[in-house]
Structures are given as C-alpha cells and as structure tokens.
C-alpha cells in the first residue's frame, strides 16, 4: 500500500434495518444542461440488501445512471437522504466520498477504463495498493479466469478480457458493493455472457452486493430483483422467483 487511508470518521447513526446496505430515501436530482433544467431523479425510495444482485433497468434518460452515480459516491443528491449502512453520505465531503469509494465500492464501466500503461496485474494492483484488506491481484484475476494473461497490457487484450480485468480490479479490494454501468454494452453477445457469468460468480462466491445498470431487459433474468426506472421514477420492482444463470440468458 502506498498511501495509508486515515481512519474513517464516525458518521451519525441512522435507523437502518440490519441487512440493508443502501438506504435511499426521497432522493431527487436536478441539474442544468445549458439553459434547460433536467429532473434526473424525482423522489426515489429504495433499499438494497446484502448479497443480492440487482438489475437497474430503464431506457436512456430514465435516471438509472444518476442513481448509480449517487450510490457510488460520484454525485450528491439535490434533496433527500442516502445512507450506506448506517452512514449518512448525503452531505459527505469530497474527501469522505473518496474514502467511501476506495474502501467500499467496486466500479465496472462500459468501456472498461483500464489504465493503458499498466498490465492486467498492475491495473489490479493499483487498487490493492490503496485498499485496506485486498486479495492478491493474481487471485482476483484467477477469479475472472485471466490467470494466464497477467502481464498483458490492455492493448494486447480483447474487449471481454479487458472487462474481466476491470471486474478483477473492482473485486480485488473485497468491496461491499459492486456497481456496474452497462458492463456488456461494448461487448458482443458471447463475450457479454462470459462477463456476466464472471459477475454472477463473484456475487455468489464473495457475497458482494452487485448492482448492474442496463437497458437490455434480457439481462434482468439473472437478478434477484429488477428495478425499472422511467423518467426519474421507479415504476416497478420485481422479485425474481427463479434466477437463471448468465449462460441461459437470451437477448
């Protein structure tokens, strides 16, 4: 580890039920785009539980990305409250959010966002060096089936491989929650399924709460719960009685 993160400060307690990892309460988000005021989120209430795999479904502009950004500490809500376990992060400072992201959240992006100048192993090490109780980079890459590609640079890996390196990078710190923004958006059908398989595997093996954003309804079948958004509101929450494996998904 190259930088020691200072001890997390204590956050005000809140009445959050056990087993709930995110408690979102009456959140709105408005921002200006040029002259226009956009209501990205209108009064969202949502609880996310430990170990569950949630798919956030909705068309472009439905507010799912904004919600994910707030959950991941990249953005703050315009109003309402947002708790991570018992910590109120609604008005957290920039430094607090950085620490939150570093310690608790794993991100996976549509375009992988690997560091081009680092090898697969080093991209993962980038996170393990600053995490509190990481796994070894090799172990994380083994979990996504890339143990034979450790010393390859991003430019030498296929899209699917790059995304799996990104997953390894996200899980190596043993995060409490994994946030995936269109993880298969830039991948073909077969590769996309392999990546989803890796995510399902991590969710099952490590018990990491996983949130996947997608506008691909076909993916919803692998989730424990499916939250559908439209125009900044939750219009439906669906409990999957029978989860399917990613291999069985069709879209």
């Amino acid at each position: 580890m190259i930088w020691n993160s200072p001890e997390a400060k204590s956050y005000p307690d809140a009445a959050v039920s056990p087993g709930v990892i995110f408690h979102v309460c009456g959140i709105t988000k408005t921002y200006r785009m040029g002259e226009v005021e956009v209501h990205a989120l209108r009064s969202i209430d949502l609880d996310l539980y430990e170990r569950e795999l949630v798919v956030l479904l909705g068309p472009s502009g439905s507010g799912k990305s904004t919600l994910l950004n707030i959950l991941g500490g990249l953005d703050i809500p315009s109003s309402g409250h947002f708790y991570f376990r018992d910590r109120d992060l609604t008005h957290a400072s920039d430094a607090e959010l950085t620490r939150f992201r570093r310690d608790c959240v794993g991100f996976i992006f549509q375009f992988y966002n690997l560091i081009p100048s680092l090898t697969a192993r080093e991209n993962v090490a980038l996170v393990t060096e600053i995490a509190r109780r990481p796994m070894r980079p090799e172990q994380a890459l083994e979990l996504v089936g890339l143990e034979h590609r450790l010393d390859h640079f991003p430019a030498q890996l296929s899209g699917g491989e790059q995304q799996r390196v990104a997953i390894a990078r996200a899980i190596a710190k043993r995060p409490e929650v994994l946030l995936c923004d269109e993880p298969t958006g830039a991948l073909d059908y077969q590769t996309g399924k392999r990546v989803l398989d890796a995510l399902a595997q991590v969710n099952q093996d490590l018990g990491t709460t996983t949130v996947i954003i997608t506008h691909n309804a076909g993916i919803a079948a692998m989730a424990d719960r499916v939250v559908t958004l439209r125009s900044g509101e939750i219009i439906r929450i669906l409990h999957n009685q029978t989860k399917v494996t990613p291999a069985e998904l069709e879209w």
């Binding site: 950085t98 560091i115 996200a170």
Partner: peptide
C-alpha cells in the same frame, strides 16, 4: 484514465 483512478478511490492529490 485519471478520472477512473479518482472513481476507484484515488484522492485528488494522488
């Protein structure tokens, strides 16, 4: 690349 690092938990200084 730098924004990605910020997202995965690097501070502004880092």
């Amino acid at each position: 690349e730098l924004a990605t690092l910020r997202i995965i938990g690097f501070s502004k200084v880092q």
